[in-house]
């Protein structure tokens, strides 16, 4: 045993490359676990698609929206609801899955075990965010396929719209993730997590123009909703999927893409900062 003395030659494990490599390894691990969980996860995954189907079917008899006086043109209700459902999907993948997930990991001892291992915190975050990104991309792809082929929604054809879609989508999902991780300090147990997260998420969806036409809301409520990122995700997605003429229906009469980016970025940075200060592997001394 004389070859093993004191603090000799433990290979350096604090490097950035290792953090990233372990982050990627966590993504695969998380996806594997996620895909095996079945029931509840499956439902969250399909939720926006189910909701889109319900709206499309329920309003199918009401004619097109925004049609010209001679009732030509306009868009179907499915097309009108698509951006809202994309936004809801972005929020739900991040907030709902992760929220319940991290709270569960906290109470079942997973986080305690990870906290005692040399896994960098950043790698853990990369794993969570990566898992959500992959599942959100699959979800939105499925949603678009259903919208296109089941409900005959015209999807944008020019590259500029898809570029807009890409950044709004990525920024929106990542922002939801970091906010969720930051909020995971709130519920004390895995069981109460669902009770805390779901009402917040539901309320946000109603006031942010996901289910209800945003302009129907009183102005003070529109302004209040404008504090939160979901309103901006939905607005960004409307800019992608709705015809230019619909911009006039927005609060300011335009898509305000600059604000979409700014508000989401602010929430992203705030979320990152909160993650850093609130997230703990375990609650010490509880």
């Amino acid at each position: 045993m004389s070859t093993r003395t004191g603090a000799t030659a433990t290979p350096k494990v604090g490097s950035m490359g290792r953090t990233l490599r372990l982050g990627v390894s966590r993504i695969w691990y998380e996806l594997r676990v996620y895909s095996r969980r079945g029931d509840s996860v499956f439902f969250t995954f399909l939720f926006p698609i189910l909701m889109l189907s319900i709206f499309a079917v329920a309003f199918s008899g009401m004619g097109n929206l925004g049609a010209a006086p001679d009732s030509s043109g306009g868009i179907t209700w499915a097309a009108y609801y698509l951006p809202g459902m994309v936004a809801a999907g972005m929020l739900l993948s991040g907030v709902q899955n992760l929220g319940v997930d991290i709270a569960g990991e906290k109470s079942d001892g997973t986080l305690k075990r990870l906290g005692g291992s040399p896994l960098p915190l950043i790698s853990y975050f990369i794993g969570k965010i990566g898992m959500v990104l992959v599942s959100a991309i699959l979800q939105v792809a499925l949603l678009l396929v259903v919208a296109r082929f089941a409900f005959d929604v015209e999807l944008p054809t020019d590259a500029e719209k898809w570029w807009l879609f890409t950044w709004v989508f990525l920024l929106g999902v990542v922002t939801s993730c970091v906010l969720r991780i930051a909020l995971s300090a709130l519920p004390r147990s895995g069981k109460s997590a669902t009770a805390v997260v779901i009402p917040i998420v539901l309320l946000l969806q109603f006031i942010s123009g996901v289910y209800l036409q945003f302009t129907m809301l009183p102005e003070w409520l529109q302004n209040f909703a404008g504090i939160f990122p979901l309103k901006w995700m939905a607005q960004g997605m409307r800019a992608v999927f709705l015809p230019e003429s619909f911009a006039a229906l927005e609060q300011t009469g335009g898509w305000d893409l600059g604000w979409v980016a700014i508000v989401m970025l602010i929430w992203f940075v705030v979320g990152l900062f909160l993650c850093r200060i609130t997230f703990r592997w375990i609650r010490k001394d509880s």
Binding site: T10, S25, Y29, R32, R36, G109, R113, G116, S117, P118
Partner: peptide, 28 residues
């Protein structure tokens, strides 16, 4: 991290949901 890499910890209680196999968990 470097310190934790030199420790092995078997905690008193476990309760993980365990949706991975023994081999997957250990390899990870």
């Amino acid at each position: 991290i470097n310190w934790k890499a030199r420790l092995g910890i078997v905690l008193q209680s476990t309760g993980e949901s365990g949706d991975v196999t023994v081999k997957e968990q250990l390899s990870h």
